[in-house]
């Protein structure tokens, strides 16, 4: 069995962002730290759990992004993935999921993956498109918001549980090859073991070239980034910790809430 996990590296959400009015994009501070998109860590863990049940399974990792994403790919290999592939894209701007999914589908073409895993969304862009679009381009079934996965090699199918709104669930079987976009709560991602860390050190991450013309397709673009709209008055308390605590008590008391 061959599994591909698509991962994205995202900025730590507490990193400062600045909006440059000249540019249609927001910049993160120079010293921003980056991590693996949380949902993708769950996807890697799901792949590792499948391999534990089906020894001999190969797990590949792929990520599109600038040089820094190698660190995220390496981390997945430290968790236990077998091979890492990097599609270089140097710009820090909006890259349409339509293009990303075309790049990933192109990458998959002759590699015969039985199962592709993605996160349900990326923490920074929150679009949730890359997974289902990749599946559609490959002509394979997909399920989003997956809370449970089991592979049945004999039947060549994937059993999935999807989370629906208000906590309801949907259960189904998808014919392999298939794609699942996993939701948090599916598992607890493991920490890298020392032996995997050592092994990952000596494994190359392969850079994959692709047809640049795919980047020129005229899909939707982001024209402007702006402050999120605010629905409430938003009074920010000032002073020392104790002063703020006293002010909060007073405000709640005035509103008969305490």
């Amino acid at each position: 069995m061959k599994i591909l996990v698509c991962i994205k590296q995202v900025p730590d959400q507490e990193s400062r962002i600045t909006v440059d009015p000249e540019k249609a994009w927001a910049g993160y501070a120079e010293n921003a730290s980056y991590w693996i998109n949380r949902y993708d860590e769950h996807a890697v863990e799901a792949a590792l759990q499948i391999r534990e049940k089906l020894p001999g399974t190969m797990i590949d990792i792929v990520s599109i992004g600038p040089a820094r994403v190698k660190a995220a790919i390496r981390r997945c290999m430290e968790m236990g993935a077998d091979q890492g592939f990097h599609l270089r894209y140097e710009h820090e701007d909006y890259l349409s999921p339509s293009i990303k999914s075309r790049l990933i589908a192109e990458f998959c073409r002759d590699r015969d993956y039985d199962l592709i895993l993605t996160g349900v969304m990326s923490e920074d862009m929150m679009s949730g498109q890359t997974g289902p679009m990749t599946a559609a381009r490959l002509g394979i079934p997909s399920a989003a918001s997956v809370m449970k996965l089991e592979v049945d090699l004999e039947k060549q199918c994937l059993y999935v549980e999807r989370e629906l709104d208000a906590g309801h669930r949907c259960f189904m079987e998808l014919k392999l090859p298939a794609l699942a976009a996993v939701q948090s709560g599916i598992n607890r991602p493991r920490y890298p073991s020392l032996s995997n860390v050592m092994r990952a050190k000596s494994t190359e991450i392969e850079e994959i070239s692709y047809d640049d013309s795919l980047l020129d397709a005229k899909y939707e673009t982001v024209e402007k980034v702006l402050e999120a709209g605010s629905d409430r008055a938003g009074l920010t308390l000032q002073g020392s910790t104790a002063e703020k605590a006293a002010a909060l008590w007073q405000l709640l008391h005035e509103r008969s809430l305490i």
């Binding site: 899909y219 982001v222 980034v225 999120a228």
Partner: peptide
């Protein structure tokens, strides 16, 4: 987007 900190305005494409 951006962890909910910012809004984005999109222009349609294809």
């Amino acid at each position: 987007g951006f962890h909910g900190k910012l809004d984005m305005l999109y222009k349609e494409g294809k």
